[in-house]
Design a protein around this nucleic acid. Structure first.
Length: 300
DNA sequence: TTAGGGTTACAG
DNA sequence: CTGTAACCCTAA
């Protein structure tokens, strides 16, 4: 056939990503003509760009497509609509229930989920989320839907990034949930997001802290500039980095489960919530594996 | 021109 | 054989 299958180079992928950041997904011709990328992409057509972007989006989401939507998560009305992403439903970062203050039931089978080791990596996603929470000014912390909506209204997000955001928010939800469990049984209190330091803060800080009184959700205000800078970095993440971040988000959820299991040791009553957390983790995992890039770049 | 469905080349 | 990535076809 006319084309001998020319594999995309890392440089080309970078150019494409940069192009999408600059002109937006869908503006393939524009990206191609932009002198900033025309050099590297001179051997590609606008259609090639489109196809490549599609492939990148898919692999970014459908992680290890192997056992895909196998985990049939029962929808104990508690945990609402989850993923599955009903074909066309506006933005896709809107699944899962929000908050669920003191949910009890939620008895899900939830088999074990293997998470790829937590690879440390850049992740200022936390900051982005905090920015949203701060702006939304909801003392108790905003629900994921609100956060996702806020962020999407402020910035244009590449498909793969959206997946990360979604997973992150889910992990965050697990975190918050556990915090409630702990408080309820007076087990070492922890703070959802105390400092804006680096990534590993989200929820891997609980542990056996002493008399820390981080009971409140102290949210530090970030400047728009800071957030913008971080976002810019996220946008330029390579597929590998994005994957690492995604893995981390999930591992955080797993860590949350461990926390819960320990809590349960001191209060069986907390077990129900631990299960819920597990379910959330699975949901996060599912999201990462679900390829659903489809129609989501159409902000409202 | 683009989005999306199809097809083909290839690695595992 | 199966899944994935690069490529092709075409309606809108």
């Amino acid at each position: 056939m006319g084309a001998p299958k020319q594999k995309w180079t890392a440089e080309e992928e970078a150019a494409l990503r940069a192009g999408v950041v600059k002109h937006g997904a869908g503006k393939w011709r524009t990206i191609l003509k932009d002198p900033e990328f025309s050099g590297v992409l001179c051997l590609r057509s606008n259609v090639d760009l489109k196809d490549k972007w599609r492939n990148m989006s898919v692999t970014a989401n459908g992680w290890g497509s192997r056992e895909k939507a196998r985990i049939a998560l029962k929808k104990s009305r508690q945990i609402s609509k989850y993923d599955d992403i009903p074909k066309v439903l506006s933005t896709e970062v809107q699944d899962i229930d929000d908050e669920i203050v003191d949910s009890k039931p939620l008895s899900m089978s939830s088999e074990s989920l293997k998470i790829s080791g937590s690879k440390r990596s850049i992740s200022r996603l936390d900051d982005l989320i905090m920015e949203a929470i701060t702006n939304l000014k909801e003392p108790t912390g905003s629900n994921k839907t609100a956060i996702a909506m806020f962020i999407e209204e402020q910035y244009w997000l590449p498909p793969d990034f959206k997946q990360l955001l979604s997973a992150k928010l889910k992990a965050l939800t697990v975190s918050r949930k556990l915090i409630k469990v702990k408080r309820k049984y007076r087990i070492a209190p922890i703070s959802p997001f105390s400092e804006r330091r680096n990534s590993k803060t989200l929820l891997l800080e609980g542990r056996k802290m002493g008399p820390s009184k981080l009971e409140r959700d102290d949210i530090k205000i970030l400047t728009k500039a800071q957030v913008d800078a971080e976002l810019a970095r996220m946008r330029n993440m390579t597929a590998e980095e994005a994957a690492a971040v995604a893995a981390k988000a999930v591992s955080e959820a797993e860590a949350a489960i461990k926390e819960a299991e320990e809590a349960a040791r001191e209060a069986e009553a907390a077990e129900a919530d631990a299960e819920a957390a597990k379910a959330f983790a699975e949901a996060a995992m599912l999201t990462l594996k679900n390829r659903n890039a489809a129609k989501m770049m159409v902000r409202v």
